[in-house]
Design a protein around this nucleic acid. Structure first.
Lengths: 224, 224
DNA sequence: GCATAGGTGTCCAATTCTGAACAGACGTGG
DNA sequence: CCACGTCTGTTCAGAATTGGACACCTATGC
């Protein structure tokens, strides 16, 4: 018997396709860069699919420190926190001009049922758990520098455009935001990147950054 | 309309009850302290319910550094990672002599369906996401000392026994394990706890530790 | 053209953290 | 009751990190 994921791939649709099957009208919502899609404390029981653009999930402390949990882009689904609580526990913010589809939890679940995409949803949620778990692991076990390399690679693979051995990242993320993912300060990020530049791991072109896939991967993996 | 969680609480059973309804025989498995229930890389598509004892989820790096992701105790369910992958990406280890019920993913899902506990399962998974997310947030934004206070309180509330203003923790967790949750070294944990002792946040009785609920909470919340 | 705002490059003193080492405390099983 | 293993308490020099400051660069809008 094949695994549920693989075996049903041709039967059950992806979550993205589930959105297409939602029976009610699902207006596209537009957000400017920096606009809040939802914020901590909001009552919002809905799921989102990104049609275009870029969204970050973050949490902020009373003392003003921010933590960037994840970045999502075109085709990705977010908003799962509505299954535990009516109130959001994190912020979802557009990082670029962004278009999303919003569907109520109720309609979303109905569409999942109709599409028999139940296990697809389970796999999705469990993948999110694994992603966060890996972030915890990295924070606990790796140095800031290595963590930055890892974050850069992840971000570049998600948002970058291939260009020879490089992945081009044009203004997709600031040092400030990187520091909120890595768990350090902005000046450190700048210093680490300077080191990466000298060692050929990244290349800075004007304000944009190019990430050398191969070299960065090697750096992450050396003398584990 | 009530929230799905609350509104259906009397209709849909808890995940714990779902285990009771699994139609196949579900043998109890016993594990000694330190025994592996499953380990990174194992092929194991099953869910677990703890009948008694204490289990930790952890990940370890090639360089030998460990990260303790979560601690579960009697009545709690774990093993969700089987919904994404046939192979485990983390270790589940008994911290005390422990008895668990193991149910295959297949039987588990059948029982969930029969019990109409679908949304209960979704809420469970989403809660796990929120838990991990909070751990990431704490690692990124708080000092080690404050994080230790928070971890101590969480652990004490989960595993401790109330005793006046204190929660008694008898040998439930070592400094080494605390360091793997907090993301620092063992000697630091000892030093921080020494400070906590001097400020009355904890009390050490022989080898056991008592956590002062109120004072620790205040410490965590001061000058956010 | 100029002011402005947001991002980047740099510096540094004070602080925190690491990693390794060693001694003592406790409990268990010969 | 002693040896052994595991855990806690402590120390320390060297390394990494913080947080605040300041200069600069480059779009943008008036």
């Amino acid at each position: 018997m094949p695994t549920h994921n693989d075996g049903r791939a041709h039967l059950a649709p992806s979550l993205r396709e589930v959105f297409d099957r939602v029976s009610v009208a699902d207006p596209r919502l537009r957000f400017d860069a920096q606009a809040a899609i939802y914020a901590n404390g909001d009552e919002d029981e809905s799921m989102y699919l990104i049609d275009s653009g870029q969204v970050k999930l973050s949490m902020s402390s009373a003392s003003g420190k921010d933590c960037l949990l994840a970045i999502y882009t075109t085709g990705e689904v977010f908003g799962e926190s509505c299954f535990t609580s009516v109130k959001r526990s994190e912020n979802a913010t557009a990082m670029q001009p962004t278009v999303v589809r919003r569907v109520s939890k109720r309609d979303f679940l109905a569409a999942v049922e109709k599409a028999r995409a139940f296990e697809v949803l389970l796999a999705h949620l469990t993948r999110r758990i694994a992603e966060r778990q890996m972030a915890v692991f990295d924070l606990v076990t790796m140095s800031s520098e290595r963590r930055l390399a890892k974050v850069l690679l992840e971000v570049a693979e998600k948002l970058g455009v291939a260009d020879g051995p490089y992945l081009k990242l044009d203004q997709k993320i600031s040092h400030e935001e990187l520091s909120q993912m890595v768990g350090t300060t902005r000046p450190r990020i700048t210093a680490f990147i300077k080191g990466f530049r000298e060692r050929g791991l990244v290349m800075t072109v004007g304000r944009a950054m190019n990430v050398h896939r191969q070299k960065v991967r090697e750096f992450i993996d050396t003398d584990l």
